[in-house]
């Protein structure tokens, strides 16, 4: 297994909140972060308030403000942690034939997504109107896209990628194929009857050798 994706980026480092000096302060900050996740999941970013986060954490909103200026700063902090975890954990492995190994990567992606579904929920919510958070999202998207493009180019050099493939466009679509169905299923909860394995299998086919001639051009 080879790591094709290896990104480096500063993420949202400019907004980290104030680092608490004491162990107790660190504990309090973690309590705020945990409470914020619960509130974000329930209310979304727009409707969440510092007061609500304080109440959830069992703190006064005054003490919450000692650690974070506003809810956006809390979200930025959480998002920065998520970004570095994703960069560390989501990789696009290729096999000895220089083809992508899709299924384990997809299943790992689902696992991470479930672990952080409340953050993903807020992240998607914050794509419109554009903000520093949508910029972070686009950055992550572009990293994935470049990762796919690198893997496909590598396959082309090895002679396994379809020679006439539009790599730029295909890698764009490949990322969307990962991102959006996972969002609809795991955040919006729209396809409850569909299992991880079914989706992984389908993604594997589309990023493998396809499904064969399953499209009819006949009008109904």
């Amino acid at each position: 297994m080879t790591k094709v994706v290896k990104q480096s980026d500063e993420g949202l480092a400019s907004r980290l909140g104030r680092k608490p000096a004491s162990k107790r302060g660190l504990r309090t900050r973690n309590r705020i972060l945990e409470a914020a996740l619960v509130v974000f999941q329930r209310e979304g970013l727009v409707d969440a308030t510092m007061q609500e986060i304080g109440r959830q954490a069992g703190l006064s909103s005054g003490s919450v403000y000692r650690y974070f200026t506003d809810k956006a700063e809390i979200f930025a902090f959480l998002l920065q942690q998520l970004e570095s975890e994703l960069r560390e954990e989501t990789t696009l492995p290729v096999d000895d034939d220089d083809k992508l190994v899709v299924r384990p990567a997809v299943l790992r992606y689902f696992e991470l997504y479930r672990m952080h579904s409340s953050l993903y929920r807020v992240w998607w919510e914050s794509l419109e109107p554009p903000s520093e958070f949508s910029e972070a999202w686009v950055r992550m998207h572009d990293d994935y896209r470049r990762g796919f493009a690198a893997a496909l180019k590598r396959g082309q050099r090895a002679g396994v990628t379809a020679p006439d493939l539009d790599i730029a466009l295909t890698s764009e679509l490949a990322v969307l194929l990962f991102e959006r169905p996972t969002f609809t299923r795991l955040v919006l909860g729209w396809d409850e009857e569909t299992t991880d394995d079914q989706v992984a299998e389908m993604m594997e086919a589309l990023l493998g050798s396809g499904l064969g001639s399953v499209v009819s051009s006949d009008p109904r």
Binding site: L152, T161, L169, L177, A205, L207
Partner: peptide, 20 residues
């Protein structure tokens, strides 16, 4: 992009995937 080009690439992923 040209919508037909996008459609073509997407359909091609369904039918042929990305690898020979």
């Amino acid at each position: 992009r040209d919508p037909l080009k996008v459609a073509d690439a997407l359909q091609s992923m369904v039918l042929r995937g990305v690898y020979q």
